[in-house]
């Protein structure tokens, strides 16, 4: 299981999903900016104003991440999106489209697991 850094700027949505995260490239979508592997790339507001589906700086960063992967892993390259719970679907859609455009075929959405009221988590 991968250790995902909890970030101050990103408040993950709550969910009851139980799949453990794997070791993947991480895209942070905070309320104000987008980061890949903790490197800021674009401002979220700027993306909302623009109309293009593909976010260029994000695609370039993801492509270079993809090139760092061993060739065998490139076919099934995975990316995990850590999105703030307040971001609109519009932004998320473009981030996901950019991920697939860059060659990442598996996209996961990170969430904070909440305990179902009946049972106990952890």
């Amino acid at each position: 299981m991968q250790e995902i850094p909890s970030s101050r700027q990103v408040e993950l949505p709550e969910s009851v999903a139980e799949t453990a995260p794997r070791e993947t490239v991480i895209v942070h979508v905070a309320a104000d900016e987008i980061l890949v592997q903790d490197r800021p790339l674009a401002s979220t507001d700027g993306i909302r104003e623009g109309s293009e589906l593909i976010i260029e700086p994000l695609r370039d960063a993801l492509s270079s991440q993809l090139n760092n992967l061993p060739p065998a892993a490139r076919q099934q390259a995975e990316v995990t999106i850590l999105g703030d719970r307040s971001i609109p679907y519009d932004v998320l859609r473009r981030v996901m489209a950019t991920c697939t455009e860059a060659g990442f075929s598996q996209v996961s959405l990170a969430v904070t697991q909440t305990a179902p009221e009946g049972g106990d988590s952890l």
Binding site: P13, V16, P88, Y89, P116
Partner: peptide, 24 residues
């Protein structure tokens, strides 16, 4: 989804569609 739907709503609906009860 419509463009303005927030991420938390997406996840909540997704939980429901997947079949894990939303509020336990």
């Amino acid at each position: 989804l419509e463009p303005e739907i927030d991420y938390q709503s997406l996840i909540t609906v997704m939980d429901t569609v997947r079949g894990t009860a939303p509020h336990g």
